[in-house]
């Protein structure tokens, strides 16, 4: 049997908001180490990998590895019924065909349970090896979201170039073109406002803004975002989830014919 109690239930609500438009159905995998998910969008251009480590839950019981297929639209509907301050407990029986979400108000005066039917989903996991990336940019997540949103009003794709001068986001479209350069800065009072660039080699890659904009729905999960890039590899856009894990989005680049 499975019983996972997450005191900060709003994290799960935010995770669903961040991925439900990218992925329709997904298997949530539960093991001793944590609650995780790996899924691709329908066109196999983007991949999302979520990890909520077991030690981030107040109570974590998972007797044996369990993979639960869920429709994320339906899961999101149910989690929307939880208050932002609610404690969320996920419960399932081994081999059962449903999962129960229990919501408790902080003062324990209201308890709800919502049972959702599980579905069979062919589990296809991509093996993603640990990689040394050529360039890693850490920047405020709101700034990254702003840049993606602004540039998508001009063009459909963005060229992200990392050099010793900074990280440059460039686009062009019918009405004109735009470049945004963020330089490394060190914020004394607030680390979350820093832009930090670690670069072994300059990198320049082209991506569809539509997907990057979708990833920025995770902005509410973290004040900072990390972009890891290497030549001829998908970019990794990572949002840390405080004390408990991360959500990583991988996006395959566009290449010149």
């Amino acid at each position: 049997m499975l019983e996972l109690r997450l005191v900060q239930g709003s994290l799960l609500k935010k995770v669903l908001d961040a991925i439900k438009d990218l992925v329709t159905d997904a298997n949530f995998d539960c093991s001793e180490s944590g609650f995780s998910l790996q899924a691709m969008d329908s066109s196999h251009v983007a991949l999302v990998a979520l990890l909520l480590r077991s030690d981030g839950f107040e109570h974590y019981r998972c007797d044996r590895n369990l993979s639960m297929g869920m429709n994320l639209t339906n899961m999101s509907k149910m989690l929307k019924c939880a208050g932002n301050d609610d404690i969320i407990t996920i419960k399932a029986d081994d081999g059962g065909d449903s999962v129960t979400f229990m919501f408790e108000s902080p003062s324990q005066d209201k308890v709800s349970d919502f049972e959702m039917k599980l579905m069979d989903i062919d589990s296809e996991h991509l093996g993603i090896p640990e990689t040394e990336y050529h360039a890693i940019v850490k920047m405020p997540s709101a700034e990254f979201a702003r840049i993606c949103r602004d540039l998508s009003t001009i063009g459909d794709t963005v060229v992200i170039s990392v050099s010793k001068d900074g990280v440059k986001f460039s686009t062009s479209g019918d009405i004109g073109s735009a470049n945004v350069v963020c330089r490394q800065n060190n914020s004394v009072d607030n680390k979350d406002n820093e832009t930090v660039i670690e670069m072994n080699e300059p990198v320049s890659l082209t991506f569809a803004l539509r997907y990057l904009n979708s990833f920025t729905k995770a902005t509410t999960l973290s004040n900072t975002v990390t972009l890891s890039m290497s030549k001829e590899l998908p970019v990794v856009v990572e949002y840390k989830i405080a004390e408990i894990g991360h959500i990583r989005f991988y996006l395959a680049p566009k290449i010149e014919d």
Binding site: H44, V45, L126, Y250, A252
Partner: peptide, 14 residues
């Protein structure tokens, strides 16, 4: 022209 690549051209199913 640019072509959109797919995840499975970089990583393989495990």
């Amino acid at each position: 022209r640019e072509t959109q690549t797919r995840m499975d051209s970089y990583y393989h199913f495990s």
